[in-house]
């Protein structure tokens, strides 16, 4: 655990890695819109092609990308099976007792599966190529217009980044406390629900106390380094757009236009 950084960031130096996190966040949303607008196989195919190109430029091996699908594979299969058997259609392909599979159902199932695949994979590309820290920066920057309605954007971003920073420390600490209590005969693996919940108390209390102590000390350290909120604060790291971002924007904008055109000129067969 100690050496594994938090999140699923895949360190590399690719085109996608170098893109601005704001670009990636916005384009992910645009891409999702495009995927949902695509209601024909042609349009969806265009989306898949666009995604494939991005994935190729991400420097992330396809194996790692596919791993991210693993988590939702069950959900994918479950919806696929439901659709396959219960979607109402006319052209019957196969029938056994009350189970009917129609051509329309098959078409729809495959369509939906591809769509979900694309959604999961495209979000994975974002998290695999962007560190949690720069993701936070990106979100802060994108939310900054909300400052006008007095939404505490800076504070929210700081809370997020401090939380990210303390995750590995607290994970380590949890492991240490668990080991200490295990060494004193605590048992976390057997017994019923109530017993297991009770067994968590000797871990939770020291962990909470330590978290409060850390928070207290961190607060002092931040005070001592003149932290006072957002008013006169400057920012060292400025996010900056480059030609890469422009290219990426053009690529996805092209996709969106393509999907709309395909919608108009090659309408669905269904």
């Amino acid at each position: 655990m100690r050496d594994v950084s938090f999140g699923q960031y895949y360190p590399a130096d690719s085109f996608v890695h170098k893109c601005d996190p704001r670009t990636k966040l916005v384009l992910l949303i645009v891409f999702i819109v495009a995927v949902f607008m695509a209601d024909t196989f042609y349009a969806l195919g265009a989306c898949a092609l666009a995604f494939f190109v991005v994935a190729c430029f991400s420097g992330v091996p396809f194996k790692s990308l596919l791993k991210s699908v693993k988590a939702v594979l069950f959900l994918l299969l479950f919806t696929a099976v439901l659709n396959l058997f219960f979607y109402q259609g006319e052209t019957v392909l196969w029938q056994w007792r009350f189970i009917t599979v129609t051509a329309e159902a098959l078409y729809f199932t495959v369509f939906l599966a591809v769509r979900l695949f694309l959604l999961v994979l495209s979000s994975a590309v974002l998290t695999l190529t962007t560190t949690p820290v720069s993701l936070t920066d990106g979100i802060e920057s994108l939310l900054s217009p909300l400052k006008w309605i007095r939404f505490p954007v800076h504070e929210l971003a700081l809370i997020m980044s401090i939380a990210l920073r303390f995750i590995p420390i607290l994970t380590d600490e949890t492991g240490r406390i668990m080991n200490a209590q295990k060494a004193r005969g605590a048992d976390f693996e057997t017994g019923g629900l109530i017993k297991r919940v009770k067994a968590i108390i000797p871990i939770l209390i020291p962990l909470l106390i330590s978290a409060f102590r850390r928070a207290d000390e961190l607060g002092d350290a931040m005070d001592a380094r003149c932290y006072s909120g957002s008013k006169t604060r400057t920012k060292y790291k400025k996010l900056a757009f480059s030609w890469r971002d422009l290219l990426a924007f053009l690529w996805i904008a092209g996709l969106l236009v393509g999907v709309i055109l395909l919608k108009i000129y090659l309408p669905s067969v269904l």
Partner: peptide
């Protein structure tokens, strides 16, 4: 002031961001 516990006085995950924290607070130009 430099405090006792090294883990509890670092704000950021990346070294340079953490060092930048103080100057950012007092509004030092980029």
């Amino acid at each position: 002031i430099v405090f006792q516990n090294p883990d509890n006085q670092t704000v950021a995950s990346i070294v340079e961001d953490d060092v930048a924290f103080g100057p950012e607070n007092i509004g030092v130009p980029r």
